[in-house]
């Protein structure tokens, strides 16, 4: 059972305060949707949770241990940011190989891509893909499967209806396996998730 607790979190970016006294508790098997207008600090919140931003007021703790002091914490989450983390001049296959090395895990990419109907793209250069296709490949990183948290920054942007539904299905399956998902979105999602917070 994991419990991620955010207490009195405030953060300043430059001169403006973006997060103001945020209090959230998320337990295993739950999904949190972070909503808010542009520039309200959704991405900042995810980057605090991923230990990139370390100067903030308040406390973020996993099972009552501050994430700043938890040496194993960085291996527990999978962050999909707004950038695709793809090399434009390489084919998808080569990009996936590079990811395999960073993630220290080799997946059967051909099979996984076939499941998402992306297998016909595998030898194409990333530069020739559409934004939606790039996003799908970027979300392919969720298949690395030793993680307890998913942090998804605007995952539904550029996705068509079919892909949106399959992502929601994936999130549900992850929740059933007691994973925690925190995602940001500034549009209304077709499905209600467990928790929603407006910042």
């Amino acid at each position: 059972m994991n419990e991620l607790k955010i207490e009195d979190l405030s953060c300043k970016r430059g001169e403006s305060k973006v997060l103001n006294n945020i209090n959230i508790i998320i337990k295993s098997g739950e999904t949190l949707v972070v909503k808010g207008r542009n520039g309200s600090g959704k991405t900042t919140l995810l980057r605090i949770l991923s230990n990139f931003i370390t100067s903030y007021q308040g406390k973020v703790s996993l099972n009552d241990l501050s994430i700043l002091e938890d040496n194993l914490y960085n291996n527990k989450f999978n962050l999909i940011g707004q950038k695709n983390s793809l090399k434009d001049n390489l084919s998808i296959k080569k990009n996936l190989e590079l990811w395999d090395i960073i993630f220290n895990e080799s997946l059967d990419h051909a099979k996984l891509l076939e499941r998402d109907n992306l297998d016909h793209l595998i030898n194409r250069d990333v530069g020739s893909l559409s934004d939606g296709q790039k996003k799908c490949i970027s979300l392919h990183r969720l298949n690395y499967n030793k993680y307890e948290f998913w942090f998804l920054d605007e995952p539904f942007v550029y996705l068509d209806e079919a892909n949106t539904n399959s992502l929601i299905e994936k999130i549900n399956r992850f929740n059933e396996n007691m994973g925690i998902v925190i995602l940001t979105s500034n549009i209304n999602l077709p499905k209600k998730f467990h928790k929603e917070v407006n910042i």
Partner: peptide
């Protein structure tokens, strides 16, 4: 840095 891989790399190498 520009394509976002640096985030993953920094996360994996604390």
């Amino acid at each position: 840095y520009e394509d976002g891989n640096l985030d993953i790399i920094m996360q994996k190498n604390k």
